[in-house]
């Protein structure tokens, strides 16, 4: 018998190993690199134009008056209270862009591998729980890495304007990092669930679009009929985003329980589907 025969690692070690592999695969495979290039292009445009110009625009009293006139005096007033104005613009863009990116980047957590039988090789070596959570954590690492990179780029932009803003920029970046990571969690969990059901990444993305549109319509209709059930809108990932635009700093964490609860529920459902799926 080969001397390398070893005892199987724990479930947590398996999750860590699978997550690490997902992260390295994302940045070494062709499809991963294409997605990364698209991400860099989009963020380059955002960084170079709105974010770099943010300090000038937001400082303009006329812009503040314009926003107050269009959206009301208290709807977006927090935007003007950011200590580092570049991050105000970053916050607004990131709140909507990262969920979108996470839908498309994490759309193929299981579908292709399930179709071609690749999961069969893995499932002989790890439990289905480890396989499910390993892939999900891999996507969280990927999103975390992307958020981190954009925050570094924004901090560098801030430094190019005023080096004295380094400490407030780092503090702000840390709070934003944690908030954005929490925001994308239910999207990653949803795509894990949908990619278990779908036959391809494209189909999982289509399922996601259908889910968001149909559930939004149903919730709106229910709210029209039963206004007391407004809480139903929190069933859908991202429902808190419009409220979060006008928050900043630690205050944004007030919304964190919504995506965390959504993530927990979706992951529980995903785990059940994974346990019951034929591989």
């Amino acid at each position: 018998m080969n001397s390398l025969t070893a005892s199987s690692p724990s479930g947590i070690t398996h999750i860590w190993q699978l997550a690490k592999f997902e992260l390295s695969k994302r940045f070494s495979s062709r499809s991963g690199i294409i997605a990364l290039i698209a991400f860099i292009l989009v963020w380059s445009v955002i960084l170079i134009y709105p974010i770099k110009q943010a300090s000038n625009i937001i400082m303009e009293p006329s812009f503040k008056e314009f926003i107050a006139a269009v959206f009301g005096p208290t709807t977006l007033d927090q935007l003007f209270n950011w200590q580092v104005s570049e991050f105000a613009m970053f916050w607004v863009a990131a709140l909507y862009l990262f969920p979108m990116f996470s839908i498309f980047i994490s759309a193929d957590q299981f579908s292709s591998d399930k179709q071609r039988g690749t999961l069969r090789f893995v499932s002989l070596r790890v439990s289905r729980n480890s396989l499910f959570f390993g892939r999900v954590f891999g996507q969280i690492f990927i999103q975390g890495f992307l958020i981190f990179v954009t925050l570094i780029a924004t901090t560098l932009l801030v430094m190019s304007r005023d080096t004295g803003l380094l400490i407030p920029a780092i503090n702000t970046a840390l709070v934003i990092f944690a908030n954005l990571l929490i925001i994308v969690l239910p999207y990653i969990a949803t795509m894990a669930l949908l990619s278990l059901i779908a036959n391809s990444a494209r189909q999982a993305s289509i399922f996601a679009i259908i889910l968001w549109v149909i559930v939004s319509i149903i919730i709106t209709l229910v709210n029209v009929k039963f206004p007391g059930l407004e809480i139903l809108r929190y069933l859908l990932p991202g429902s808190q985003l419009s409220n979060m635009v006008n928050t900043q700093g630690l205050a944004a964490f007030a919304y964190a329980p919504i995506p965390l609860l959504q993530t927990a529920v979706i992951l529980i459902i995903g785990r059940i589907v994974m346990q019951r799926s034929a591989l």
């Binding site: 495979s29 062709r30 039988g117 690749t118 002989l124």
Partner: peptide, 12 residues
């Protein structure tokens, strides 16, 4: 096992 028709990830 060698599962019938199972393939490795083509991109890694």
């Amino acid at each position: 096992a060698l599962p019938q028709d199972a393939q490795l990830d083509p991109d890694s």
